[in-house]
Structures are given as structure tokens and as C-alpha cells.
């Protein structure tokens, strides 16, 4: 129930993101969702891709510092107020969200919220017990 995510360390200078995108294109890797956290000096690119193991390998080979870790993907209805419901649940149950980003599926009126927790297993348990559908890793690759 945990989804593989690829994180890449990028210096904050022109062309770095283009280089990542080029490596992914050359290896026919498709990005399902992405987010960038940035500071004045560096940024961290986080992505859900269709082939995480291969993405890790080819980016590493291209000289990037890459990490593969896990996030939790919660399926939510695409309507106002749902983010509050999720955050309220996390708050109530003492789950600290490290970061989050989302993906909207136009065809199904659903959205997927990707969340990074210090303790993803505990988060999975809590979301399941509260009746949420969690995205499986195979599904995330096919989004």
C-alpha cells in the first residue's frame, strides 16, 4: 500500500530540471505526478513515475543524486473540503505529514493525494481503518 517515489537533488540553476526531463524522455519513462520543493540554493524534485526502479537507475547513471522512498496515495473525491477531512484525520491521530502533493483524474472525478509520513505503515493502518481507499503501487504506475 506504499507507493514508490523518486526524489532527485537539484542545484538551483538553469537547465537542471531540463536535464532530468531529458534523461527520462530518452528512457521512455512517464511521469504520473511531480512536485518540487525549493530553497535559494537547491531543490528536491519528487516524482511518481511508471517505472521507478528504472528511473532511479538511469538518473543515477546520469550523475544525479537520487533516492527511492515511499509515500501513501489516498483516493479522494474531487470536491471542496476533502483536504480538510484528510488533514483533520491526520491531526486527530497524531500523524505528522512531512509533505504532500496531489493529482486530479479528470475521467473519474477522483483525485489522489500523495502524502509522506515519518511512519507510513501507521498511516496506512489509520487510513484503512477510516474507510479510505489507498492506491496500490501497481496502480500508481499506471495512473
Amino acid at each position: 500500500m506504499q507507493i514508490q517515489q523518486i526524489s532527485v537533488f537539484l542545484e538551483n540553476k538553469p537547465g537542471r530540471l531540463a536535464h532530468v526531463a531529458e534523461v527520462l524522455r530518452d528512457n521512455k519513462i512517464n511521469i504520473r505526478a511531480l512536485t518540487i520543493a525549493d530553497t535559494s540554493d537547491f531543490g528536491i524534485l519528487r516524482m511518481i513515475v511508471n517505472k521507478p526502479e528504472q528511473a532511479h537507475e538511469v538518473l543515477k547513471r546520469a550523475g544525479f543524486t537520487v533516492k527511492q522512498n515511499v509515500v501513501v496515495g489516498v483516493e479522494i473525491a474531487d470536491r471542496e473540503g476533502v483536504l480538510f477531512e484528510i488533514m483533520h484525520l491526520c491531526d486527530e491521530r497524531g500523524l505528522n505529514v512531512e509533505y504532500t502533493y496531489s493529482f486530479v483524474e479528470q475521467s473519474s472525478n477522483k483525485a489522489i493525494l500523495f502524502l509522506r509520513f515519518e511512519d507510513p505503515e501507521k498511516a496506512v493502518e489509520i487510513f484503512r481503518a477510516s474507510g479510505y481507499t489507498l492506491l496500490r503501487d501497481e496502480e500508481a504506475r499506471k495512473l
Partner: peptide
């Protein structure tokens, strides 16, 4: 930045 040092959380890198 090496793989060993890299954390994907800004606060850890700072």
C-alpha cells in the same frame, strides 16, 4: 551531495 547524505526533506538538508 552524495546518496548517503541525501534526504528528500528540505529540513534535513538545511
Amino acid at each position: 551531495m552524495t546518496d548517503e547524505l541525501f534526504s528528500d526533506e528540505i529540513k534535513n538538508l538545511e
